[in-house]
């Protein structure tokens, strides 16, 4: 990978990230807003498409890597995070963006998520949270509210919704934010900050499913969301952040940057092999005969 200096780079625009096929999402799906903001943010950060890899799981939202011109890996349902962790550790020069849905990340994949946060892997994880399983045509998700009627809970959901932000703040994530695809400007700012953050960034995004979720609609969020930055929130204070994470009412559902810890190094900076020597994937393979002989000597 020849290093390209910023000076010789042609100016990059969102168009450079135009994917090979148009998204097959339902017209009006919140995920369009996420995709647009992502393309704009990457351009704003001056990333060249080949320096970025977009990794996803399975779901409507997880189809995103097919709709953007970057390297991509469209993985198994719920497994985007460990795949992305392996990718990031094997080549920490790549900009790793993980995209997916609430079912993918907070349901089947939640076990991996909590550990990736603990590890502070350097990546931005964007969860298009529509409080429903879209691709499988409308079942309850881990973030569906109590009482919500879905195809899998026609009598109404009984389970307490998972609180992804509170989980992330207490789980060790070093950057935790929430956006809304109906607020593209703030969403772009959050993506940019999350990508620039060195460590694990969780960006939960209200991304309405216009087809299957008749409760959490654009108007539902429009009426309730309040920007944290407008209310003097201090993201370095985890107590405040947790309090905001638990705030959910008809008057206020906070969006913005909840929590940030700039002091913790990312995993690839503490991992003994990766601390120096450049990306693993570009290093020569094998060990020297001298190293090998030393291993055999230990067996004698």
């Amino acid at each position: 990978m020849a290093a390209v200096t910023t000076a010789e780079r042609p100016t990059i625009t969102a168009k450079d990230f135009q994917g090979p096929v148009d998204p097959d999402w339902c017209p009006g799906c919140g995920d369009f807003g996420v995709l647009n903001s992502l393309k704009k943010t990457l351009a704003e950060l001056g990333k060249a498409p080949h320096e970025v890899i977009t990794v996803s799981g399975i779901g409507c939202s997880s189809n995103l890597p097919g709709f953007i011109h970057t390297y991509g890996m469209h993985t198994l349902h719920g497994r985007s995070i460990p795949v992305a962790t392996g990718l990031q550790l094997a080549n920490h020069d790549l900009t790793v963006v993980v995209t997916g849905g609430d079912g993918d990340g907070y349901g089947i994949g939640v076990g991996h998520l909590i550990h990736a946060m603990r590890r502070n892997v350097n990546l931005l994880y964007i969860v298009m949270n529509n409080e429903i399983y879209g691709l499988t045509t409308g079942q309850t998700s881990p973030t569906s509210l109590i009482g919500m009627q879905t195809k899998s809970n026609p009598e109404g959901n009984l389970d307490m919704p998972l609180n992804p932000l509170a989980m992330a703040i207490s789980g060790g994530a070093t950057w935790v934010g929430r956006g809304f695809s109906g607020e593209p400007k703030q969403l772009g700012q959050l993506m940019k900050a999350g990508m620039e953050h060195n460590g694990f960034s969780l960006l939960d995004v209200f991304s309405p499913c216009v087809t299957y979720n008749k409760d959490q609609t654009y108007p539902f969020f429009k009426e309730r969301v309040k920007k944290l930055e407008d209310n003097g929130h201090d993201p370095s204070d985890w107590r405040q952040a947790l309090e905001k994470a638990f705030t959910w009412s008809d008057e206020e559902i906070p969006i913005g940057l909840f929590f940030e810890n700039r002091d913790r190094p990312a995993l690839h900076e503490t991992e003994p092999v990766l601390r120096k020597g450049g990306p693993l994937a570009l290093r020569p393979l094998g060990i020297s005969p001298k190293q090998g002989q030393a291993l055999v000597d230990k067996l004698m």
């Binding site: 990794v55 890996m73 993985t75 198994l76 497994r79 460990p82 795949v83 992305a84 962790t85 392996g86 990718l87 990031q88 550790l89 094997a90 080549n91 790549l94 076990g111 991996h112 550990h115 991992e271 003994p272 092999v273 990766l274 020597g277 693993l280 994937a281 570009l282 290093r283 060990i287 190293q291």
Partner: peptide
């Protein structure tokens, strides 16, 4: 591993193990 330039990770479960290894392999190692 550390002396030989091999990154060694203990992962949360075997689903995470194989998918993490696949991610690393996809990156080229």
């Amino acid at each position: 591993g550390p002396d030989l330039g091999i990154v060694v990770r203990q992962v949360e479960d075997e689903i995470g193990v194989i998918t993490m290894a696949i991610g690393a392999a996809h990156a080229g190692v």
